[in-house]
């Protein structure tokens, strides 16, 4: 794992059918694999999905695809919201148009 990936962490809290996922570090082409696997393994039965990106300082193209995958899943089974983006990360979502298809607060 490169230095850029060392600090990447996923933590989550589940209460009933509500899942809060807190991410830390960079969501780049390498760490997005772990993130994607987490999404694929943990959304069963979830009706409310919340991402907290307070400690995320970078989201790459591959990372955007994982958020879109999560949004596609949640469209069928509930709702999804992304919170606490830094200005830099929010800019990536806005400039690419991904914020048009996701609920960002």
């Amino acid at each position: 794992m490169s230095a850029e990936n060392e600090g990447f962490q996923i933590s989550h809290e589940k209460e009933g059918n509500r899942l809060k996922v807190s991410l830390k570090g960079e969501i780049n082409v390498d760490t997005s694999r772990e993130f994607d696997a987490f999404i694929n393994d943990n959304l069963e039965g979830v009706k409310e999905l919340e991402f907290d990106l307070k400690e995320v300082d970078f989201v790459s193209s591959a990372g955007l695809r994982v958020f879109l995958n999560a949004q596609n899943i949640m469209d069928e089974q509930g709702s999804m919201v992304i919170r606490n983006m830094s200005e830099d990360v929010k800019e990536v979502f806005d400039m690419t148009g991904f914020s048009d298809v996701m609920n960002i607060e």
Partner: peptide
């Protein structure tokens, strides 16, 4: 040079739209 998966992200977004 663009980040890896940029064109796939573009296609995913267009399909989503």
């Amino acid at each position: 040079f663009l980040q890896n998966e940029t064109y796939q992200a573009y296609r995913d977004l267009m399909i989503r739209k």
